[in-house]
Every structure is written in C-alpha cells, then in structure tokens.
C-alpha cells in the first residue's frame, strides 16, 4: 500500500519514511576579535563532503541559540543586519566555521554543529548516537521524517535568472533544508538577499506543489542538495 503522505506528518515515527541520520556531530567554541572575521578549521576524513548545519550562542550554556547567518540584530546595520553571526561550510577535507564580528568588542562563539551525508555518499561510518549501544527512540518526541532527498546540477549562468522546480506532491508548504556546492565547497542556504549586503547565487522557495531553486544568472556551476520532510 503506498504511503499516505497526508497522514504521515501526524505520526511521531513512520516506518515508510527514514529518520534523519546525523553522521557528524559536535560542539566547540572560539573567539573572534572586534570588527573582524575568525575561522576554525576541523579536519574530517569522510570520502564525501558532509552537508553541515548548526547554531551558536554567546555563552557556553547556549542560553539564546542563533541560527546560521543570524545573530543579535545590529542597532546600526552597515555591513550586516546582525552585529555578529556564524557560518559553516565544508570541503573535501575540513569543516569550516566562520564567526563574523561587526562589534567593537571581542565575541565568543559557542557552536553546535551536525552534518548529513549527501545522497551520492557510500561509506562505512562510525555511529554518532549519544547513547552508544542503547536504544534511543523515545515516544515523547516527534522525529523528523525524510521524504525527498537528492541534488540538482545547474550550469553556470549566462545573464538571466533561471528557476528549477522539484514537485514534492505533499500538497502543503513543508520543511526543507538545502545546501549549495560550489567548486568543492558545500554551504547551507539560509539567505535570500537581493539588496546591498550580499547577493546569493541561488535561493530556495516552496509552495504547496513545488520546491523552487532560483539561480541569479551570474552564478557559477552549482550543485544544490536538498532534504524535504513530511513534517510541516
């Protein structure tokens, strides 16, 4: 019997849909001086480039957790809407964290990061379960249920914006996370900025029918990885 996608999102766990599997997981902290950017390079030995995600806080207790490309709002934005923010990306040999500090003081970044395999990966991996051999499924939680995951390749732009659509068939505006892969570097997509701060090569949007990737037209050759969930 085909899976009923209209009901699947109501389950805490659904055996027709994979649960997210995190293959990279960690926390770290680093300091960035005033009005500069700071980088942390973490070597990895995966045979693939991991699809990284994460968050960060200004204190070790993660009292207030900011997302990627987000942070405290700047009172006088000039270079960024935020006074400080964190980015993460990965290449074939390392995971790279970047802290951007637009304040006049040192900023301490406390980061939580995790990563997925791309759909092209095929490697034996050590587990990341925090409970070792213990069973970690808990009916108190609603686990993320993966529905679509793949990538698209887009040739370099020739001037005009280009849109590509992926029908998702869910009939609703659902959760997705995406990354762009550009010249061997994989970066989460979290910005759509047509303004003066930054122009992105590709932006992601969704409606009740399609996931749409819109390329700027001046973009390089890109691969866009996506993971679409039953969960709304």
């Amino acid at each position: 019997m085909p899976a009923d996608v209209t009901q699947a999102s109501k389950f805490l766990f659904h055996s027709d849909y994979p649960v997210d599997k995190l293959v990279a997981l960690g926390t770290l902290d680093f300091t960035v001086p005033a009005t500069t950017n700071g980088f942390v390079y973490i070597p990895h030995d995966y045979s693939f480039i991991p699809l990284m995600w994460g968050s960060w806080a200004l204190d070790a207790s993660y009292s207030t957790l900011y997302g990627l490309n987000s942070g405290p709002v700047s009172a006088a934005p000039t270079v960024s809407p935020f006074s400080s923010l964190m980015k993460v990306r990965a290449d074939a040999t390392q995971i790279i964290l970047e802290g951007q500090n637009y304040t006049g003081s040192t900023v301490n970044f406390y980061a939580r990061i995790f990563g997925f395999e791309p759909t092209t990966a095929d490697q034996f991996l050590d587990g990341t379960s925090p409970v070792g051999d213990g069973f970690q499924f808990n009916t108190d939680y609603n686990y993320t249920k993966l529905y679509l995951h793949d990538y698209i390749d887009q040739a370099a732009g020739t001037g005009s914006p280009v849109s590509r659509t992926i029908p998702h068939g869910l009939g609703t505006n659902t959760q997705i996370i995406t990354w762009k892969e550009d010249a061997g570097v994989v970066t989460p997509l979290t910005i759509h900025d047509g303004g003066e701060f930054q122009v992105e090569d590709v932006v992601v949007s969704i409606d009740n029918t399609n996931i749409t990737f819109t390329f700027s037209g001046s973009h390089p050759a890109l691969r866009v990885h996506y993971r679409c969930y039953i969960d709304e």
Binding site: F13, S15, D16, Y17, P18, V19, D20, K21, L22, V23, L25, F114, E117, T119, A121, D122, Q123, F124, L125, G127, T128, S129, P130, G134, F135, Q136, F137, Y141, N142, Y143, T144, L146, H149
Partner: peptide, 16 residues
C-alpha cells in the same frame, strides 16, 4: 552503515 537504506538506525543521532 549504508546511507539512507535504513528507516531507522540506533547507531546514529537524529533530529527531533
């Protein structure tokens, strides 16, 4: 661990 061939694997952390 084969990627994405398991519905659920207790060896790997996941999201909630």
């Amino acid at each position: 661990s084969k990627p994405e061939k398991f519905i659920y694997s207790s060896d790997f952390a996941t999201l909630k």
